[in-house]
C-alpha cells in the first residue's frame, strides 16, 4: 500500500513540470481572456460583467458575416483535404514503413518551412501574371485567386493536408491486410472492399483527421491574411485587427473566446460521432 502511494506521488512529481507549464502558459492566461471578454469597452457599453460583447458580435451584420465565413471556409477546406488525403493514405497503407514515413515527412516539409514561406510561394504561383495562371488566361480569362476566398481555401487545404494524410494513414495502416485478402478471396471487387471493409474500419480515423483538420483550418491566420481579399476577414484576422489596429483588448478577447467555443462545439460533435463509429 505504501509502495503504491509512493508510486502515485512519483507520477505526480513527474507530471508537475508539464502541468505547471500548461497552467502558466494556457490555463491562467485563458482565464484572463475570458474575464476581459465579459467586460464593457469603448465599442460596447454595459454595466458590470456580461455577455454584451458576444451579443454585439452576433447582432452586427458585419461580424456575423465574419463568423459564418470563418466556419464555412474551415469546413470546406477540411472536407476537400479529407477527400484529397484519403486516396493518398490508402496508397501509403500498402508501402513499407520506411518509405511511407519518408513520404509523410516530405509532406511535412512545407509545414516545417513555415506559413510565411508557403504563402510567398502561393503569391508567386497564383499571381495574375504568374506561371500557373498566365498560360490559362487566353482560355478562362483573368482568374483572380489571390485576394479571394478561393485563395484562402487553397492556402488552408495546403496547410492541413499533411496532417490529415498522416493521421488517416496511421489509422489505415493498422487495418490487417488479411481482412482485405479475405474479402478479395470471397469475390469482393476493389470498390466493395473499400466500401465494406476499409471505409467502415477507418471511420474513427477519418473523424479524428476531420477534428485535426478543422481545428488547424479554423486557427489559420497567415493564409487568410495574405491570400484573402480585404473583404474576406476571418475570426483570427479579427482578433489581430482588434489588438493591433483598434487596441480593443476586450473585443479581441470576445472574438478569441467565441472562436474557441465554436471550435470546441464542433470538435465535441465530431468526437461524439467518432465514439459512435467505434462502437458500431
Amino acid at each position: 500500500m505504501a509502495r503504491l502511494r509512493s508510486g502515485a506521488s512519483v507520477s505526480a512529481w513527474l507530471l508537475a513540470p508539464a502541468s505547471l507549464l500548461l497552467i502558466a502558459g494556457i490555463a491562467v492566461p485563458l482565464c484572463a481572456t475570458i474575464w476581459l471578454s465579459l467586460s464593457p469597452n469603448v465599442l460596447v457599453h454595459f454595466d458590470g460583467k456580461g455577455l454584451g460583447n458576444f451579443q454585439y458580435l452576433f447582432k452586427s451584420k458585419y461580424y456575423y458575416g465574419v463568423i459564418i465565413r470563418s466556419l464555412r471556409i474551415a469546413a470546406e477546406a477540411t472536407v476537400i483535404a479529407l477527400i484529397v488525403a484519403y486516396p493518398v493514405a490508402l496508397t501509403l497503407r500498402r508501402m513499407a514503413s520506411r518509405r511511407a514515413s519518408a513520404v509523410g515527412l516530405a509532406m511535412m516539409l512545407p509545414v516545417l518551412s513555415g506559413p510565411l514561406v508557403v504563402v510567398l510561394g502561393w503569391m508567386i504561383l497564383l499571381s495574375d501574371g504568374g506561371p500557373l495562371l498566365a498560360p490559362l488566361t487566353p482560355y478562362i480569362g483573368r482568374l483572380r485567386i489571390v485576394g479571394s476566398e478561393t485563395g484562402i481555401i487553397v492556402g488552408i487545404v495546403h496547410f492541413i493536408l499533411p496532417f490529415t494524410v498522416i493521421s488517416l494513414a496511421s489509422v489505415l495502416r493498422l487495418i490487417p491486410e488479411n481482412l482485405v485478402e479475405a474479402a478479395r478471396s470471397l469475390g469482393a471487387t476493389p470498390l466493395e472492399i473499400f466500401r465494406r471493409v476499409l471505409l467502415p474500419l477507418s471511420l474513427p480515423g477519418l473523424l479524428s483527421a476531420a477534428i485535426i483538420g478543422f481545428s488547424l483550418a479554423a486557427s489559420s491566420f497567415i493564409a487568410p491574411h495574405y491570400l484573402g481579399g480585404p473583404a474576406d476577414v476571418t475570426l483570427t484576422a479579427l482578433v489581430a485587427q482588434f489588438v493591433l489596429a483598434t487596441f480593443n483588448g476586450e473585443m479581441a478577447a470576445a472574438v478569441a473566446v467565441l472562436l474557441l467555443v465554436l471550435m470546441a462545439a464542433i470538435i465535441f460533435l465530431l468526437s461524439i460521432a467518432a465514439a459512435r463509429s467505434v462502437r458500431t
Binding site: G25, I26, V28, P29, L30, C31, A32, T33, L36, A218, S219, F221, T236, V239, A240, V243, G249, A252, A253, A256, L259, L260, M263
Partner: peptide, 13 residues
C-alpha cells in the same frame, strides 16, 4: 487552440 489566441491570452494576463 489557435496560436493567435495563445498569444493574445498571454498578452492579456
Amino acid at each position: 487552440i489557435p496560436e493567435i489566441v495563445i498569444g493574445l491570452a498571454i498578452l492579456q494576463v
